[in-house]
Design a protein around this nucleic acid. Sequence first.
DNA 1: CAGGTAGGTTTCCAAAAGGATACTACACAA
DNA 2: TTGTGTAGTATCCTTTTGGAAACCTACCTG
Lengths: 133, 133
Amino acid sequence: MSEPGTPCSRKRCLGKEYSCSMELSLAVIGGKWKPLIVWHLRDIAAMRFSALRRTMPAITQKMLTQQLRELEADGLLTRTVFAEVPPRVEYALTDLGRGIVPILESLCRFGREFEARFGVEDADAPTATAAVR
Amino acid sequence: MSEPGTPCSRKRCLGKEYSCSMELSLAVIGGKWKPLIVWHLRDIAAMRFSALRRTMPAITQKMLTQQLRELEADGLLTRTVFAEVPPRVEYALTDLGRGIVPILESLCRFGREFEARFGVEDADAPTATAAVR
DNA sequence: CAGGTAGGTTTCCAAAAGGATACTACACAA
DNA sequence: TTGTGTAGTATCCTTTTGGAAACCTACCTG
């Protein structure tokens, strides 16, 4: 990228403003849900809306719809509507979308390294650490 | 991680709640500034506060301080205060912090791939694409 | 004594992200 | 006729994140 001390220039791609390619990537796959969505689609041909909801019980319908549309607009996945009743809509990763799976795997590894270093607890299990906070 | 269709369980590490290691990583290095800070420190022994500010002109003092403290609390960097006047404080990546540099490099590569696919413009340069929005 | 310098903190505020709830359309089943 | 399932919208609200501006400290220089 740039030499230490040199600021980057502002750029724009698909409506996202950023100063370096890394920021752009974070705009594309960052946020609370997008990495999870891509992760769940990573080695499956396609998945329908309701199946995705079941794998992510904490997401609301609105958020899932919204995130899926953004991922589609950014070319990371395809959305296929079947003209059936009840409705059927299937989502599948594109090649571009599959390109970020290795990054998510690295993130997973780092997360586990982090857990190994600092320890993990079960949430909702009040422990010494939780009590201190 | 889990089989398709199986939700993950809630965990906690260093006060952060998450459902899978990937989410934990994003809690640690996600956000608008942290990746940039780590990036600027990536191949330099140490850097002082004012130098970091110069490389990231858009960040405010408050945000830089806050993000640096969080990165320190998560063990990604060290903060060294020199008892001098005017004050001098230096920040340096730890081994743990250096561990995420390869991930940031992957993000950079993906970002460039994304740019290549969809095209980049200079921000503040009103173009056809900008006019359409 | 005024002004500058480095690295902050504090207060207040705006914007963005995320979420709860209610509503829709359509076909079919009981 | 009422209910069920799917994939949504629409509205309103709360929480989180980010930011602007002022203030602070401790010393040094002119």
